[in-house]
């Protein structure tokens, strides 16, 4: 028995409602995040993730009420990201019932935040979210603000730096693939997972069950995060688990 690969349904949240768009525009509404999280909890999601996709550019705080209502009824780990700018934001999320805070834009702008949050709360609850676009063969650049702002930072180099600074996990999203259903960017995942010791969560582009398998087997991801394929009933978590198991991946036995 080894550590199981995790399947993480992700709920993109805006104004307290679940949304999922194609490349972060053209949002569709799929309900109350806490309700949706309870459904995934009942389906034995290995973790649940909320990303407040509008927080960093609209200056909104993270969705404490949604987090609180979710933690009331879900006994599964909850990661929340979006708008985390300071150590106090991490603390507020943890107090509301989140288990991990995902830091995105602020980690790029002020990497010292990673060190400070990790020292304060432990690496195990600090996720650094990296949104990357391919800019050349085997080269990816980090973008912030929902993919609108180029940073000039190399994604792989920053991933290594983030782990050295105390990130307990990396949430690696391909901005090229996000919302397309064309599959994760396996080369990006592999480039990062082969260079860091921390677990890598694959994100952006899952369109089918084989994509989940490929992220783990080819990309070296420890976890797969997906939204649309679960939200709109295309696949259940049980189907995802079965497909990964059939491919020889260790998943949580139920």
């Amino acid at each position: 028995m080894t550590l199981a690969a995790r399947i993480i349904p992700c709920l993109d949240v805006k104004d307290g409602r679940v949304v999922k768009g194609v490349n972060f525009v053209d949002l569709r509404d799929a309900g109350d995040p806490a309700e949706q999280a309870a459904v995934y909890d009942a389906q034995h999601a290995d973790e649940i993730c909320f990303l407040d996709i509008s927080a960093s550019h609209e200056g909104r705080g993270t969705l404490m009420d949604v987090v609180r209502r979710t933690a009331e009824r879900c006994f599964t780990p909850l990661t929340v990201g979006g708008g985390v700018r300071a150590v106090e934001d991490v603390r507020a999320l943890l107090l509301a019932g989140a288990d991990k805070a995902a830091i995105n834009t602020a980690a790029i702008k002020t990497p010292d935040l990673i060190d400070a949050a990790s020292a304060k709360f432990g690496a195990q609850c600090i996720v650094v979210a990296i949104d990357a676009k391919a800019v050349a063969h085997d080269r990816w650049e980090i973008f912030t603000h929902g993919g609108r702002t180029a940073t000039g930072k190399d994604a792989v180099a920053f991933a290594i730096e983030a782990v050295e600074r105390g990130a307990g996990e990396l949430l690696v999203t391909s901005m090229d693939r996000d919302g397309t259903g064309a599959g994760y960017d396996i080369a990006l995942l592999h480039a990062i997972s082969s260079r860091v010791r921390a677990p890598v969560i694959a994100s952006g582009g899952a369109g089918g069950l084989q994509d989940l398998v490929d992220a783990v087997k080819l990309g070296g991801a420890s976890a797969v995060l997906a939204a649309s394929i679960f939200h709109f009933g295309r696949h259940t978590l049980a189907e995802a688990r079965a497909a990964m198991k059939a491919a020889g991946i260790d998943v949580r036995p139920l």
Binding site: T2, L3, A4, R6, D46, R197, P199, S222, A223
Partner: peptide, 15 residues
């Protein structure tokens, strides 16, 4: 970790 990930994060068997 002997080559495995660190932190040890996720679901594992308790024997």
């Amino acid at each position: 970790p002997h080559g495995a990930t660190l932190p040890h994060m996720g679901w594992n068997a308790a024997r």
